[in-house]
Nucleic acid binder design. Structure first.
Lengths: 208, 208
DNA sequence: TCTATTATTGATCACACGATCAATAAGTTG
DNA sequence: CAACTTATTGATCGTGTGATCAATAATAGA
């Protein structure tokens, strides 16, 4: 299983190589989690000497933090695109829950869970985690506030509701990482909970 | 900061030493997380040669898994005791949410989060995590079923509701690990969500 | 074409991890 | 008191980690 011996990597511009390393780190993280993002693993993926990665990324903690940020902000952009076009806040919220709980992003969930754990030993990562969590909160809060303004939702603290929603989503996804058996019914019950949070009638959200 | 050189540990019975090691592993896990439960860290805590820990625990993966089980099942017992005496299912559920979301068990939350992450590389741990999650689900499900039977709650799948509740709780607690700033309002909004899940009127649960 | 810059490498360090094993010494049993 | 059992140890191995540095070779610029 040993790799064919590497000859010598083609010389590339710093910008290009740097981007290549960032991409490799992202791929490794999505495949093996943030714990898999090591000097040697990243180097191996682009067939380059470990020292080269160290040359471009003198601090692995920083690379891990940046990789987390890349993955998670891409996820947010993607979900934003998916949801922005929908007509009503209620439809946007329903679609948000749908896509985040359908199991299609379990690789990103691993990154989240490992970031919460790793953040305790990697301050740069912890800061980035807070930053990205806040971006998500802002995004969800926007939907909630639009719903309140449109008279669809009833709540007095949109930020708190946003945190609550994200907590529920992340918790359910984290659980699903371990108990795959019935991980698919993640989204089955959350509807009623959300209805309760937003003063909706029973089933009002499930109309998707 | 180096420890005074250890002379020689008193000879103890296998049962006693074994228990001492298990206790040390538990303490280390609660202080530094499951990732801190290493051969050397456990040995250092009871001032013993690392090889002795290895003698009693030939497989560190197993010790980590067992330590997780010890901590988490103790938590469940504790919460059970705290809640069992209460008169109504609604009161029991309210107290359950209260105690699990008041931040007094953040050290256990770290253990949970790290277990979800570590479980992907430690099969014994993953099995134990599933086991303990199921014990918690059974416990919460019991409260929910009692509430349904008593006519206090309205839900058609108590198991699903239990998973949902646990997911919410774990997610909110995991978030609080990182954003300490306003981690104290964890429990502020969950009430309405739970009311929605259980068909309660607005504020019906908050009467605690 | 010659020279200066620098992307890339192999070698190596220090550290932490789990694991193994022969040697030692404390306790137990006859 | 002697012989045996075994709890405990120090030493050591193999692996994986991040990091450093002098040497090399490819490119860019004069």
């Amino acid at each position: 299983m040993s790799r064919p011996p590497r000859k010598k990597a083609a010389r590339k511009s710093p910008a290009e190589r740097s981007a290549e390393i960032a991409d490799a780190a992202r791929d490794v993280a999505l495949e093996h989690g943030l714990y898999g993002v090591t000097l040697r693993a990243v180097a191996a993926r682009i067939d380059v000497a470990p020292a080269l990665v160290a040359h471009y990324e003198p601090d692995m903690h920083a690379l891990v933090a940046a990789t987390f940020g890349t993955i998670v902000s891409a996820e947010l952009d993607e979900v934003d695109d998916l949801v922005a076009a929908l007509p009503s806040p209620r439809a946007r919220l329903a679609a948000l829950l749908d896509t985040l709980l359908d199991g299609s992003r379990d690789d990103v969930t691993v990154v989240w869970v490992e970031a919460w754990a790793l953040g305790r030993r990697n301050e740069a990562l912890a800061a980035r985690v807070r930053e990205e969590m806040d971006a998500w909160r802002t995004f969800v809060q926007g939907i909630v506030e639009a719903g309140i303004a449109a008279g669809e939702f009833e709540a007095d603290d949109a930020a708190s509701v946003a945190w609550q929603l994200l907590g529920m989503i992340d918790g359910l996804n984290a659980h699903a990482l371990v108990r795959w058996e019935d991980a698919d019914d993640r989204g089955s019950r959350i509807g009623h909970a959300v209805e309760g949070m937003l003063g909706l009638g029973r089933g009002a959200l499930a109309a998707r």
